[in-house]
Computed example of a mutant assay.
Amino acid sequence: MISKPYLLLLIKYLEYLVEYNSHTNLTAIRDMKDALEKHFLDSLLLQNLLDKKQCKKAIDIGTGAGFPGMVLAIFNPDIEFVLMDSVGKKTIFLQNVKELLNLENVTVINSRAEDYITSENRETFDVGLCRGVNKLNVILEYMIPFIKINGHFLAQKMVGTEEEDEATNALNTLGAKIITIHRYNLPHYGDERLVVEILKDKLTDIKYPRRAGVALKKPL
Protein backbone atom coordinates (compact mmCIF):
# COMPACT_ATOMS: atom_id res chain seq x y z
CA MET A 1 0.00 0.00 0.00
CA ILE A 2 1.26 3.49 -0.88
CA SER A 3 1.67 5.66 2.21
CA LYS A 4 -0.42 8.83 2.29
CA PRO A 5 2.41 11.43 2.26
CA TYR A 6 3.96 9.85 -0.86
CA LEU A 7 0.55 9.58 -2.53
CA LEU A 8 -0.19 13.26 -1.93
CA LEU A 9 3.16 14.25 -3.44
CA LEU A 10 2.53 12.00 -6.42
CA ILE A 11 -0.88 13.58 -7.04
CA LYS A 12 0.59 17.08 -6.79
CA TYR A 13 3.30 16.11 -9.30
CA LEU A 14 0.73 14.59 -11.68
CA GLU A 15 -1.52 17.64 -11.56
CA TYR A 16 1.41 20.00 -12.12
CA LEU A 17 2.65 17.90 -15.07
CA VAL A 18 -0.75 17.94 -16.81
CA GLU A 19 -1.10 21.70 -16.27
CA TYR A 20 2.48 22.48 -17.38
CA ASN A 21 2.22 20.19 -20.40
CA SER A 22 -0.79 22.17 -21.63
CA HIS A 23 1.53 25.06 -22.58
CA THR A 24 4.99 23.46 -22.75
CA ASN A 25 5.45 20.19 -24.58
CA LEU A 26 7.08 17.75 -22.17
CA THR A 27 5.36 14.49 -23.06
CA ALA A 28 2.96 13.29 -25.75
CA ILE A 29 0.65 11.84 -23.09
CA ARG A 30 -1.66 14.63 -21.94
CA ASP A 31 -4.61 12.81 -20.39
CA MET A 32 -4.31 12.55 -16.61
CA LYS A 33 -5.45 8.92 -16.44
CA ASP A 34 -3.02 7.87 -19.18
CA ALA A 35 -0.17 9.82 -17.57
CA LEU A 36 -0.83 8.15 -14.23
CA GLU A 37 -0.59 4.67 -15.74
CA LYS A 38 1.98 5.08 -18.50
CA HIS A 39 4.37 7.44 -16.69
CA PHE A 40 3.87 7.21 -12.92
CA LEU A 41 2.90 3.56 -12.42
CA ASP A 42 5.34 2.57 -15.16
CA SER A 43 8.11 4.24 -13.14
CA LEU A 44 7.05 2.47 -9.95
CA LEU A 45 7.61 -0.91 -11.61
CA LEU A 46 11.23 -0.38 -10.53
CA GLN A 47 10.50 0.12 -6.83
CA ASN A 48 10.84 -3.50 -5.74
CA LEU A 49 14.08 -3.85 -7.70
CA LEU A 50 15.44 -0.68 -6.12
CA ASP A 51 14.56 -1.97 -2.65
CA LYS A 52 16.91 -4.92 -3.17
CA LYS A 53 19.97 -2.91 -4.27
CA GLN A 54 20.96 -1.16 -1.01
CA CYS A 55 21.12 1.96 -3.13
CA LYS A 56 22.34 5.28 -1.74
CA LYS A 57 22.91 7.16 -5.00
CA ALA A 58 21.11 6.83 -8.35
CA ILE A 59 21.33 8.60 -11.71
CA ASP A 60 18.54 8.89 -14.31
CA ILE A 61 19.91 9.82 -17.75
CA GLY A 62 17.47 11.31 -20.26
CA THR A 63 14.86 11.65 -17.54
CA GLY A 64 12.55 13.91 -19.58
CA ALA A 65 9.68 15.01 -17.35
CA GLY A 66 11.12 12.94 -14.49
CA PHE A 67 10.42 9.32 -15.35
CA PRO A 68 11.38 7.17 -13.63
CA GLY A 69 13.75 9.23 -11.45
CA MET A 70 11.49 11.88 -9.95
CA VAL A 71 8.75 9.37 -9.11
CA LEU A 72 11.25 7.08 -7.41
CA ALA A 73 12.79 10.03 -5.55
CA ILE A 74 9.40 10.73 -3.96
CA PHE A 75 9.20 7.17 -2.65
CA ASN A 76 12.86 6.91 -1.60
CA PRO A 77 13.82 10.01 0.40
CA ASP A 78 16.99 8.29 1.71
CA ILE A 79 18.39 7.84 -1.82
CA GLU A 80 20.18 10.69 -3.58
CA PHE A 81 18.90 11.08 -7.16
CA VAL A 82 20.61 12.92 -10.01
CA LEU A 83 18.11 13.63 -12.80
CA MET A 84 19.81 14.53 -16.08
CA ASP A 85 18.44 15.80 -19.36
CA SER A 86 19.97 17.85 -22.14
CA VAL A 87 16.71 19.71 -22.93
CA GLY A 88 16.47 22.92 -20.94
CA LYS A 89 12.68 23.22 -20.84
CA LYS A 90 12.53 19.78 -19.22
CA THR A 91 15.13 20.50 -16.55
CA ILE A 92 13.39 23.81 -15.75
CA PHE A 93 10.20 21.83 -15.17
CA LEU A 94 12.06 19.29 -13.01
CA GLN A 95 13.59 22.04 -10.88
CA ASN A 96 10.09 23.44 -10.38
CA VAL A 97 8.83 20.01 -9.31
CA LYS A 98 11.73 19.60 -6.89
CA GLU A 99 10.87 22.92 -5.24
CA LEU A 100 7.10 22.31 -5.33
CA LEU A 101 7.50 18.98 -3.52
CA ASN A 102 10.44 20.05 -1.32
CA LEU A 103 12.55 17.11 -2.46
CA GLU A 104 15.95 17.53 -0.83
CA ASN A 105 17.23 14.27 -2.32
CA VAL A 106 17.04 15.46 -5.97
CA THR A 107 19.69 17.22 -8.06
CA VAL A 108 18.64 18.36 -11.54
CA ILE A 109 21.36 18.53 -14.21
CA ASN A 110 20.97 20.13 -17.65
CA SER A 111 23.70 18.35 -19.60
CA ARG A 112 24.67 15.53 -21.89
CA ALA A 113 26.10 12.49 -20.13
CA GLU A 114 29.32 12.81 -22.15
CA ASP A 115 29.83 16.34 -20.83
CA TYR A 116 28.77 15.75 -17.23
CA ILE A 117 31.02 12.82 -16.41
CA THR A 118 34.16 13.83 -14.51
CA SER A 119 36.61 12.15 -12.18
CA GLU A 120 34.39 13.24 -9.28
CA ASN A 121 31.28 11.42 -10.47
CA ARG A 122 32.70 8.59 -12.57
CA GLU A 123 31.86 5.18 -11.10
CA THR A 124 30.15 6.68 -8.03
CA PHE A 125 26.49 5.65 -8.52
CA ASP A 126 24.92 2.49 -7.12
CA VAL A 127 22.09 2.39 -9.65
CA GLY A 128 21.53 3.80 -13.11
CA LEU A 129 18.04 4.43 -14.51
CA CYS A 130 16.90 5.10 -18.04
CA ARG A 131 13.55 4.70 -19.74
CA GLY A 132 13.47 4.27 -23.50
CA VAL A 133 16.31 6.63 -24.44
CA ASN A 134 18.07 5.32 -27.59
CA LYS A 135 18.97 1.70 -28.19
CA LEU A 136 20.56 -0.29 -25.40
CA ASN A 137 23.99 -0.45 -27.06
CA VAL A 138 24.00 3.37 -27.16
CA ILE A 139 22.67 4.14 -23.69
CA LEU A 140 25.11 1.66 -22.14
CA GLU A 141 28.01 3.86 -23.17
CA TYR A 142 26.39 6.87 -21.52
CA MET A 143 25.40 5.03 -18.35
CA ILE A 144 27.94 2.37 -17.38
CA PRO A 145 30.87 4.79 -16.76
CA PHE A 146 28.81 6.44 -13.99
CA ILE A 147 28.10 3.19 -12.15
CA LYS A 148 30.44 1.73 -9.54
CA ILE A 149 31.62 -1.87 -9.67
CA ASN A 150 28.84 -4.19 -8.42
CA GLY A 151 26.32 -1.46 -9.16
CA HIS A 152 23.29 -2.00 -11.40
CA PHE A 153 21.66 -0.42 -14.42
CA LEU A 154 17.88 -0.90 -14.62
CA ALA A 155 17.03 -0.18 -18.24
CA GLN A 156 13.33 0.10 -19.07
CA LYS A 157 12.62 -1.04 -22.64
CA MET A 158 9.61 -1.79 -24.80
CA VAL A 159 8.75 -5.39 -25.62
CA GLY A 160 9.86 -6.74 -29.00
CA THR A 161 12.88 -4.53 -29.66
CA GLU A 162 15.35 -7.37 -28.99
CA GLU A 163 18.02 -4.78 -28.26
CA GLU A 164 19.77 -7.08 -25.80
CA ASP A 165 21.24 -9.13 -28.66
CA GLU A 166 22.76 -6.02 -30.25
CA ALA A 167 24.31 -4.92 -26.95
CA THR A 168 26.74 -7.81 -26.41
CA ASN A 169 29.83 -5.95 -27.63
CA ALA A 170 28.95 -2.81 -25.68
CA LEU A 171 28.48 -4.82 -22.49
CA ASN A 172 31.81 -6.62 -22.90
CA THR A 173 33.65 -3.41 -23.78
CA LEU A 174 32.27 -1.42 -20.85
CA GLY A 175 32.58 -4.16 -18.20
CA ALA A 176 28.97 -5.17 -17.62
CA LYS A 177 26.57 -8.05 -18.18
CA ILE A 178 22.83 -8.70 -18.29
CA ILE A 179 21.77 -10.77 -15.30
CA THR A 180 17.96 -10.74 -15.55
CA ILE A 181 15.18 -9.50 -17.81
CA HIS A 182 12.10 -8.69 -15.76
CA ARG A 183 8.64 -8.64 -17.39
CA TYR A 184 5.73 -6.63 -16.04
CA ASN A 185 2.25 -5.59 -17.12
CA LEU A 186 0.68 -2.21 -16.46
CA PRO A 187 -2.34 -2.72 -14.16
CA HIS A 188 -5.14 -1.15 -16.24
CA TYR A 189 -4.10 -1.25 -19.89
CA GLY A 190 -2.10 -4.45 -19.50
CA ASP A 191 0.80 -3.20 -21.65
CA GLU A 192 3.89 -5.36 -21.19
CA ARG A 193 7.12 -3.76 -20.02
CA LEU A 194 10.69 -5.02 -19.79
CA VAL A 195 13.34 -4.05 -17.28
CA VAL A 196 16.79 -5.23 -18.31
CA GLU A 197 18.85 -5.61 -15.14
CA ILE A 198 22.55 -5.14 -15.82
CA LEU A 199 25.43 -5.69 -13.39
CA LYS A 200 28.67 -3.75 -13.73
CA ASP A 201 31.44 -6.15 -12.76
CA LYS A 202 34.59 -4.48 -14.13
CA LEU A 203 36.13 -1.02 -14.33
CA THR A 204 35.21 0.93 -17.46
CA ASP A 205 38.02 2.28 -19.63
CA ILE A 206 38.48 6.03 -19.08
CA LYS A 207 37.97 6.70 -22.80
CA TYR A 208 34.23 5.97 -22.42
CA PRO A 209 31.92 7.66 -22.99
CA ARG A 210 33.35 9.03 -26.22
CA ARG A 211 32.76 12.68 -27.14
CA ALA A 212 29.22 13.93 -27.69
CA GLY A 213 27.38 12.26 -30.56
CA VAL A 214 29.88 9.47 -31.27
CA ALA A 215 28.03 6.72 -29.37
CA LEU A 216 24.88 7.42 -31.39
CA LYS A 217 26.66 7.49 -34.75
CA LYS A 218 29.01 4.58 -34.06
CA PRO A 219 27.53 2.32 -31.34
CA LEU A 220 29.86 -0.14 -29.68
Rank of each mutant, 00 (worst) to 15 (best):
A65V: 12
G66L: 01
I178C: 05
C55T: 08
A35C: 12
L154S: 06
K89Q: 08
I74K: 00
H23Y: 13
E19Y: 12
M1D: 13
Y208D: 00
N137F: 05
Q47L: 15
S43T: 08
K57S: 01
T124A: 05
L103V: 12
I206A: 09
K57W: 00
G160S: 04
T173F: 04
N21F: 13
G69M: 10
L10W: 14
P187K: 06
I206V: 13
T118V: 04
M70W: 06
N48Y: 10
D126S: 01
K57F: 01
E99S: 14
L46I: 09
A113S: 14
V87F: 08
T204Q: 09
K98F: 11
T124V: 04
D201G: 02
L103H: 11
D85I: 07
K52S: 14
Y116F: 15
K12W: 07
P219N: 02
V127R: 01
A176F: 03
P68I: 09
L154F: 11
Y184R: 09
I149L: 09
D191F: 08
V108S: 09
K57D: 04
M158H: 12
E99C: 05
E166K: 14
T91N: 04
Y142H: 06
N185P: 00
T204V: 13
H188A: 13
E164T: 15
R211E: 15
L9H: 10
P77I: 02
K90R: 14
D78N: 15
L41N: 03
L50Q: 07
E80Q: 10
D201K: 03
G128K: 03
R211G: 08
H39Y: 14
G88C: 02
R122E: 00
P77R: 07
F125T: 01
E80V: 01
K89I: 07
E192L: 02
L7V: 03
E141P: 04
T168L: 13
S22A: 14
L101A: 02
F40L: 10
N121A: 03
D60W: 11
S111K: 06
L101C: 04
L171A: 00
K12C: 10
T24H: 11
E99V: 06
P145S: 03
N105W: 11
K52H: 12
L186Y: 14
G128D: 00
L45N: 10
F75L: 13
D42H: 07
F153D: 03
R112M: 06
I74Y: 08
R183P: 09
N102M: 05
L129F: 14
K177P: 09
L49Y: 10
V195E: 13
R183M: 02
K207V: 11
G213S: 11
M32G: 02
